[in-house]
Structures are given as structure tokens and as C-alpha cells.
Design a protein around this nucleic acid. Structure first.
Lengths: 252, 252
DNA sequence: CCTCGACTTGACCGTTTGGTCAGGTTTTGA
DNA sequence: TCAAAACCTGACCAAACGGTCAAGTCGAGG
């Protein structure tokens, strides 16, 4: 704070703020200096972006493994391959780093949510959404774990996301589901409970993957196993809301 | 370690061991001094049991809220209403305290598991089990959170439980489900995936209750809301495995 | 009433950890 | 070529935390 060089006029985006937790930032990806967008200009900015990416990846892994308090800046720095002091050059505080990790995760989450839209048949929308979320659990288990950890401990950092973006998204999808029900395309189940069930089940395969591996003889699920699980989940949920997932026999 | 009084001949049970995590204890509830059972004898032992209970409750709450590393002995002591040094008289180390908290949770988990047995109709067994697990999430959210946190971070303390008790229980229930499938009482879904789905969904209402409250307008679910959710979950799962939860029409 | 062991506690200690800082080196732009 | 800005890093610091210890108090048995 008193120094003047650990917080230079940074090309990319950086600390945002160093509050003692709580409150977040913009809809993410919004406010950027009119220079950095994604196709960064100079070689300098490009290098910076690469280093930041490396740090964020390391941080995601360490935060997922040890939780916020259990993760240490030293371990993150070691995993990212640079000295701890240098890490503080890019991210002013541990909380600032953590927040960016969580924001990145939320972006992925929202992108999967798009699978819900674009078609008006529940079996296709729900199926696509479940598969997308299962694939995220397969590809980004650490991200999901960090998210789970954050919620588990009362969402001290992302409370505002829950109250704004997530709530809006949820309400929109609930209306969609209610529309399907009204048109008789599926049984009248509570849409919110259905969404929670999908979240819980899909994220379970990331958050609890250690337990799943243990009960799988100590081995991670193979690609074939995972695909079978994914399709089983899809069919149980679809059948659970009154849609026959197997097109051989008509159901509704 | 060098001292001789912080680890006295304790009437109840205590430290077990102070390893740097990993490895656990017996099938839990087994090896006890031939005195302490549940009906403790002297007023002394009774007082001790009461204090230990108070500490364990405080610890469960603090561990659930902050995670293992984030929880501090000071906060636990404060919540239990005694000085930190006194807490170390009852539980030698933080890990020893944590382990007892987790063991207690596992016991509750196993008791709910009994709901699975005692009848041979899947709709009744599954329904009872789901309801029991939902009620646990309602009554012991902190316990569930500690458990989730433990698995999330790779089960450093309860790995042996996963590999022994939990695996045996799971295999037994899977065979039961396979029997139901073989007799045509439900659709042929992968039993393991079904169990995971039930675990994920029911525990979601404990582990993610903060998110659920936020999306419920900042208020916890009322008893009525929770009961509705519980029955919705039961009916989606039952219908999902080909059992009509609504007895008006025959399904299988 | 006295003794001995169970229990209690304030003060203290060594370690870990997030963060700082001064003094570098490298890159950029004029 | 040269200065200024950006970037890098070993050494350091204060706070927090788990755990220890000596000096107690309390209560049951003799």
C-alpha cells in the first residue's frame, strides 16, 4: 500500500481491490483498458498474459487441493515456477488471486449454461445441459472444487454473483421449464429442485472424484466408464421428469 | 510429547494418534476402555463426557465454516466456552479433534444407510433412504459440510473408511439393486450411478445450503418447502429408475 | 482435614505465512 | 544510445497459530 511499484499501471487487469473478502467485480470481462481485449498487442502484454495464466492455473490447482486458507502463496509460486515475491507483482494479495480464479470458473459455468438454450424440446435442452455439465466436471474438476469450497464456506467472495447473475439465470431457466410443463412436454416437477438435482449430480463427479476413484478400485473412471455414467445420469433425469430417453417407445 | 501431564490416563477416549494426517482408526465405536460405554460411571466421567461433547459440537461448526486449515483452535475454544489450553487437555492435537468430529459424522451417515434395508421393494427402500438422507442434510448440515470438505481435499484423514466400511456398504447395496433389476422391479440402470446421484442430491441440500438460501430470497427453506423438495427428489429418482411414485397408475 | 490426582489457565514459544522492500535486470521507445 | 518503465527476486518482517508449560484450583477418598 505504501509502496509505489508493486501496483504499477498494469496493461492487463490486476488487483481490482484488496478488501477483507466480500463483494466482487463487474460482470467479468467487461471493464478493460481500451488496449487489452484478447488479442493483446505488444510482446510485453502477451508475456504478461502468459504468466498470469500460468499463475491462475497453479492457483486453481492449489486452492482446489487445500482450500483457501490451506493454500499458500509459496506453493502456488512453486507450482507456477516463479519466486513468491514475483507472484505478488502480478496479484497484489492472496484474495485478489483467489477472486480471479473463482471468476474464471464462473465463466466456464455460464458457458455450459448456454447449452440449455437454443431449442425448445426439454429432452434435448436438458440432455445437452447435463452432458455439458458432466464434461466440465471431467475437464475442470479443480475449478468445480474451488467453487464448491467457496459455497461450502458461505461464499465470502462470490456472494454478489449468486445474488445477481446466478439468480437471473436460474429464474430464466425455471420459466423455461415451467413452459415445458404447461405444454405437457414433461411432468409437473418443481423446476428449482430439478435444477439443483442436475447441479448436484454433475458436480459430484468433480467435487467427490476422490471418493469415486476410491470406490472404483483406486482408479479414475476410464473414458468409457465416464461416458456410460453420463448417459445413465441423462436417462435417469429425463425419465424422472416423465420423458422417455429411449426413443423406441413413445412416452408422453 | 516430552511432558507427562497433557496426556494423562484418560477415562474416555482421546488422541488415538497424532500422525501428520492419513490413516485412521478402527471400525469406530470398537476399542474402548472396559469402563466407558455410554452409561458412564462417576460424576467426573460424566462431566468429562459433557465437556467433550461441547467441544466436538463447537469443532464441527468451526470446521464446517472454515475448513480444516481455516479453523483455529482458538475459535473452537471460544465457541465451546473454555480457554484454548484447556481444549488441548481434552484433545491433544487439532488433528485428533478433527478426526473425532469426522468419525462422529460417519456414524450418522451409516445409521441413515440402514433405511435401505428391511424391505424388499425398491420403491420403499429407495424412498426411505432418500428421505433419511434428506433429513440428515436438514438436521446436520455442518457434519455433511465437514465430510464434503474432507473428500474435496482428498480424504487425508478418512481414506481408510472409504476403502473399507464405505466400499463394503456400497457393494452390498449395489447387489441389492441388481437383484431388483433382475426381478424386473425397476429399469436396468447402473446401481453405482444411482447411488452417487442420491448421495449428491441429498447432500447438496446441506453442503450448498448457502447457495440454496441465497436463491430462496436469502431465507432458509421453510419446513414446508423442504418437505416439498424432499418428495420431489424422491419422485424424480423413483420415476427415473422406472418406478411410478404415484400409485394411481401401475408402472412396472 | 489432608492428600493426590484430575482439571484449569495465563503466559509463552517456535514455526508458518502473507506481504514488503530495496536493489537489481530487461525491455521499450525516442 | 540512453533513460524510464516494466519486470524480477533474495532477504526480511509482523501477525497468527498450534502447541507447551508451570503454576495453579477443585473434589473425591482415606
Amino acid at each position: 500500500m505504501t509502496s509505489d511499484h508493486a501496483n504499477p499501471p498494469i496493461p492487463g487487469q490486476d488487483d481490482r481491490d484488496a478488501d477483507p473478502l466480500s463483494e466482487g467485480a463487474q460482470p467479468a470481462g467487461a471493464v478493460l483498458p481500451p488496449d487489452a481485449d484478447d488479442g493483446v498487442t505488444g510482446t510485453r502484454a502477451l508475456a504478461r498474459q502468459a504468466v498470469e495464466e500460468r499463475i491462475l492455473n497453479a492457483a486453481e490447482q492449489v486452492f482446489a487441493e487445500y482450500g483457501f486458507k490451506g493454500a499458500t502463496m509459496g506453493r502456488i509460486a512453486e507450482l507456477a515456477g516463479l519466486p513468491k515475491a514475483n507472484l505478488h507483482y502480478y496479484f497484489a494479495t492472496k484474495i485478489a488471486l483467489y477472486r480471479q480464479v473463482v471468476e474464471r470458473i464462473f465463466q466456464i459455468w455460464l458457458e455450459a449454461a448456454d447449452a440449455f438454450d437454443g431449442c425448445d424440446r426439454p429432452e434435448e435442452a436438458l440432455g445437452r445441459y447435463i452432458r455439458a455439465k458432466m464434461d466440465i466436471s471431467r475437464l475442470h474438476p479443480n475449478g468445480s472444487k474451488v467453487w464448491a469450497n467457496e459455497i461450502l464456506h458461505g461464499a465470502p467472495v462470490i456472494q454478489d454473483y449468486l445474488e445477481t447473475t446466478l439468480e437471473e439465470w436460474t429464474n430464466g431457466r425455471m420459466r423455461l421449464i415451467e413452459g415445458w410443463i404447461a405444454r405437457g412436454l414433461m411432468k409437473p416437477v418443481d423446476p428449482r429442485t430439478l435444477l439443483y438435482m442436475i447441479w448436484a449430480t454433475t458436480q459430484h463427479y468433480a467435487d467427490f472424484n476422490h471418493q469415486i476413484h476410491t470406490l472404483n478400485g483406486g482408479e479414475p473412471l476410464s473414458d468409457e466408464q465416464f461416458e456410460a455414467v453420463r448417459e445413465t445420469v441423462v436417462s435417469i433425469v429425463l425419465r424422472g421428469v416423465g420423458i422417455d430417453p429411449d426413443p423406441r417407445t413413445g412416452a408422453d
